[in-house]
Design a protein around this nucleic acid. Structure first.
Lengths: 297, 297
DNA sequence: GAGGGGGCATAAGTTGTGCTGATGGTGCTC
DNA sequence: GAGCACCATCAGCACAACTTATGCCCCCTC
């Protein structure tokens, strides 16, 4: 019976009713009178009956018109509120960003960036969670997080899928030895084939095994911890050797351990992961910008 | 900064979010995928940022998108309610019609028609008010009434302006004489030049004076009342002569008065007055139909 | 009573939006 | 690696929407 009502025409009806006449509404909109007249005619056709009664001095709504006007008021209010809400998000008066970061990054880079964002825009709500790259990427993919700080060895982390990768920094991976250890000789990593090794997180351990295999041996991993303080304490006591990325050593450096630069261990690539387009979300973009600034400093 | 949001695109965003993907929404709407895609791109441009994040398996809303979706839900609900409301008015499950009628019509024709309407459509609210044609027309013009039952002598009432006139019936105007009165002779109305006259409402009196002037005399209006029962009682007591339209005599006929048909007195035209287009309003149309049916019966 | 200014509707013409169809890119699945 | 999801982009076409032009009515004024 009655067709679907075009909400734009509903708002036009509201303009006309407020202006008091079709011509006045047209002037207010910067349109011509027939344009408004035709829209109104179409709306009345869709509504199945007259909405405005035309008099010599303008128009007055019918009962159906008044009913639609009440609805139109609500629609107009919602549209206005929506614009306000968007403006608040856009100007960072509000908004939310959920970051997942791996532990050693969370200890240094993240607090700086999050603190700066909170200071500049108190309205933005920042959610922070620790997580190794695989879980971090999963959280972003699932929509449980907006941004992930992750890393990969000699390139972006695996399993990015459709996610976008933004590199932040590259850092060397160092050999960490007990005090008094002679260090690798001319044969490099292969000189350490008989040492006891201390492994970190699963992916760090995989990287270590890969590198050692390239050097011709399989390391004996006697201890395991993903805590870089614990690892260094084990090394300092002479319980084994290990590798650590530069940022972990920057966050905490045991006074007794010996750190040796060994390029063959490769470099760790640290960067941001987000869903495509998410870097255009204001709150996310603001945090990204601050993370980039801190990383390049 | 951000342009005006097209509410249709807001509803489209809602469809896409509910469908889970752009393609699925397009299928549901019977559109092609690029059509939806372009609308969304336009909406995001207007909103100043992304609203949906595209993934391999569909889309998920951003924070801004969720804000707009909440608004879109309200808009959709309002549009639905508006359609329901229109349907109720159209099917006469609701609605209102305000009728102004002149007294003698209100005594006979109106109760029948209003009763029939109330019986058929209990949801329709009928407002009834008595009023002589000038006030009735003014009420309709001012929007205080939807429909007027009015009359004019020898044609539609004066002062219609832009109002529409729908004739219902024509009735003769009769001469009303005291018992035993000889009645007019060969000269017709002029034979009554020396009588005492009883006048009715202002317009009836004007009509009477006009007719007498045409007959060559000015009537002596000794008494005045717009109540046709009172007037007939005055005539019955011999206090004067008068004229009354047939419907007044049909509503009440004093047993003693003598009624004479005198074509020179003209005919009274009874009809409906409404603002142009108002007869397309369901409730008004329903009452008009019943008034027409009763009048032609 | 003729003229001017208010209101509105309608018709015809032009411009721009909005849709389609085709194409290309991507990721996931078997 | 082929097939099938998803999406964006482009060109092309059709209709919708707006403008211009016109006519009608009512009201007011001179």
């Amino acid at each position: 019976m009655l067709m679907v009502l075009d909400p734009r025409r509903l708002l036009l009806l509201r303009d006309v009713a407020r202006a008091g006449s079709i011509s006045a509404a047209a002037r207010g909109l910067g349109w011509t009178q027939p344009a408004v007249s035709q829209h109104l005619a179409r709306l009345e056709r869709d509504a199945g009956g007259p909405l405005l009664l035309r008099g010599p001095a303008g128009v007055t709504p019918t009962e159906a018109g008044e009913a639609l006007l009440r609805r139109a008021d609500v629609v107009a209010a919602e549209l206005h509120a929506a614009r306000e809400e968007l403006a608040a998000l856009h100007s960072l008066r509000g908004g939310r960003v959920r970051l997942v970061a791996f532990p050693s990054a969370a200890a240094t880079l993240v607090p700086d960036a999050v603190g700066a964002l909170a200071a500049d825009h108190p309205g933005v709500e920042v959610g922070l969670q620790e997580g190794e790259p695989p879980e971090a990427l999963a959280a972003v993919s699932a929509g449980d997080a907006d941004l992930a700080l992750a890393f990969g060895y000699d390139g972006p982390p695996a399993g990015l899928g459709t996610l976008a990768w933004r590199p932040l920094l590259e850092e060397p991976v160092h050999l960490v030895l007990p005090p008094g250890h002679p260090g690798p000789g001319r044969r490099g990593l292969a000189d350490l084939a008989d040492e006891d090794w201390i492994g970190g997180c699963v992916r760090c351990r995989t990287h270590l095994v890969t590198r050692c295999a390239a050097a011709g041996f399989e390391p004996t991993v006697r201890h395991t911890s993903d805590d870089y303080v614990v690892v260094q304490n084990l090394v300092a006591r002479g319980l084994g050797v290990t590798v650590l990325p530069a940022s972990a050593l920057a966050a905490y450096r045991h006074p007794d351990v010996r750190v040796v630069d060994l390029p063959v261990l490769g470099r760790r690539h640290v960067g941001l992961v987000h869903r495509p387009g998410a870097d255009a979300v204001p709150a996310t973009a603001a945090l990204v910008a601050r993370l980039v600034a801190r990383a390049s400093a």
